[in-house]
Design a protein around this nucleic acid. Structure first.
Lengths: 121, 121
DNA sequence: TTTATATTTAACTTATTGGTTAATTAACCA
DNA sequence: TGGTTAATTAACCAATAAGTTAAATATAAA
């Protein structure tokens, strides 16, 4: 998982971890706080592991307060994802006609440069 | 990988697959077209597998044209991700002061409902 | 100093991922 | 028909992910 973006996407590819982020978006929470909704489904060490994945991806920061480890959400890695997504916005936001026109305009440019691969029908 | 959103995030958590999407954002491409930039690093079956992951996540669609399988990008799953991201926008886009104020306002609401966990310092 | 609470680490298991090579299928072409 | 190109499938392997239980660590409190 060399690159930053892959690491962030991978961290988000788990419903438990996304639920933890959702909880943290309401404010700081300790490990036990975060674990509570999941203790019927998994053990505390499993929760620790999920938090470690989020931490390594930079999505949360753990601090110390007595024997507790309050966690807070850090949105920066999400900004990287949002930036990456921008280049695809046209593929979901515009009407299909516009998307089609957009693709055609690109194809034309490529043809003009002689790059288009011609294929007999 | 039960849920849709997890499947999409997981599909995006690989630089090869993201590069393939980037290529497809310039227009349709066959499997060989998509494979070309990676054939020094991996075999064709590996490429097929990556495409299968993208296809199962709904990010691409494969069609048939003679012995080729032209692939096209489908942005819909990205819209789901963009929607999910919206709830976190405040965590990267606003100034830290505003974020702090936002969190405080939420904390206050929770205190008012008697939900806030009080902890001695 | 013992005990309780909060959290992590260690060691292990199982399933999934990402890759390989070799063989197979499918369509076209001479 | 036989050969070539495009792509997939099968069988396998190594590394990683996600979980487990049991033990260890750290702080606070009695």
């Amino acid at each position: 998982m060399e690159d930053h973006l892959s690491q962030t996407f991978a961290a988000l590819a788990d419903p438990t971890r996304r639920a933890m982020l959702a909880r943290l978006s309401k404010g700081e929470a300790s490990v036990t706080d975060l674990a509570r909704p999941f203790l019927k489904e998994m053990s505390l060490p499993a929760v620790t592991k999920h938090l470690k994945v989020l931490e390594k991806a930079g999505l949360i920061t753990k601090t110390k307060e007595a024997q507790w480890r309050p966690c807070k959400l850090n949105g920066m890695p999400l900004k990287d994802i949002a930036n990456w997504m921008e280049q695809y916005r046209v593929f979901w936001e515009e009407s299909f006609d516009r998307l089609d026109a957009y693709l055609k305009s690109i194809q034309t440019k490529r043809s003009a440069k002689g790059k288009k691969h011609v294929r007999k029908k």
